[in-house]
């Protein structure tokens, strides 16, 4: 794998987005706006935003990045540029890495923006370490990108890709501890919830846990990111039937 060709691909993707300021705006601002809306809606219940807000910092970037990545890579397939690239010396790993780096960079900006706004304007008084929340938001964005890449390899149209959202994201949203703490779920669902990436994002934000606990939650997220990227790279097919 050549890092040079991966970074060329990253630059090309960022150039594409630069010509589409509205998408960049949506990508960077929607998670921040949503968290702001949440903070505003909970104004009359002191302390509620402090407990719910951080958990959503791990959820919104995942959803936004998942959607954008799956649609943009699928478009690459339907327009024929992917097929053209496959006749050139660009490996599947370089292609996937190019996307992961481009959207990873966007996720960094996105997570920075949402955490800074939360701690300042939105008045978040969370009992945790701010940097940990930023890193969780970043991991969540990368998770969204990695799963978007993996699933768009199996979708046949942008329409299908968008429908992966409710099928893939919503069950995690129900089980990740946002509605009911994971410890109160029926035991079978608890086992499932404990290994889902979104649960790890929510857990990694929880205050007052042991270092080992945080390390294990980050390990789950990083593991999912790597596995999804590898799946994304291997399910891409140079030849089609």
């Amino acid at each position: 794998m050549s890092l040079r060709r991966a970074l060329l691909t990253t630059r090309r993707i960022l150039q594409q987005l630069r010509h589409d300021p509205r998408t960049i705006g949506l990508l960077l601002l929607v998670p921040s706006a949503l968290v702001g809306l949440l903070a505003w809606s909970l104004t009359n219940d002191p302390g509620a935003f402090d407990s719910i807000g951080p958990r959503l910092l791990g959820v919104f970037p995942l959803v936004v990045m998942f959607l954008v990545t799956s649609v943009i890579t699928l478009r690459e397939r339907s327009v024929g540029t992917l097929e053209r690239l496959f006749t050139l010396p660009l490996t599947k790993a370089e292609f996937v890495a190019g996307y992961a780096i481009a959207f990873g960079a966007l996720a960094i900006v996105q997570s920075f923006l949402v955490s800074v706004l939360s701690y300042t304007w939105y008045g978040l008084a969370h009992q945790g370490v701010p940097w940990r929340i930023s890193v969780v938001a970043l991991c969540a964005g990368l998770l969204g990108t990695a799963f978007g890449l993996a699933l768009s390899a199996t979708a046949h149209s942008e329409f299908q890709a968008v429908q992966f959202m409710p099928a893939f994201i919503l069950p995690q949203l129900l089980l990740c501890g946002l509605i009911l703490p994971v410890s109160q779920l029926p035991s079978a669902l608890r086992l499932l919830a404990d290994v889902l990436p979104m649960t790890a994002a929510v857990h990694a934000i929880a205050p007052f846990q042991s270092n080992w606990y945080y390390v294990s939650q980050f390990a789950i997220m990083v593991g999912y990111i790597l596995v999804a990227l590898i799946v994304g790279a291997t399910t891409l097919r140079r030849t089609t039937k």
């Binding site: 150039q15 010509h19 327009v79 024929g80 540029t81 097929e83 053209r84 050139l88 010396p89 660009l90």
Partner: peptide, 18 residues
């Protein structure tokens, strides 16, 4: 790879790049 120039039906270009 790279030794056969290919032009597909339908342009296969990035419309959002110059």
């Amino acid at each position: 790879r790279g030794r056969i120039g290919y032009m597909a039906q339908g342009s296969a270009i990035y419309l959002d790049l110059t």
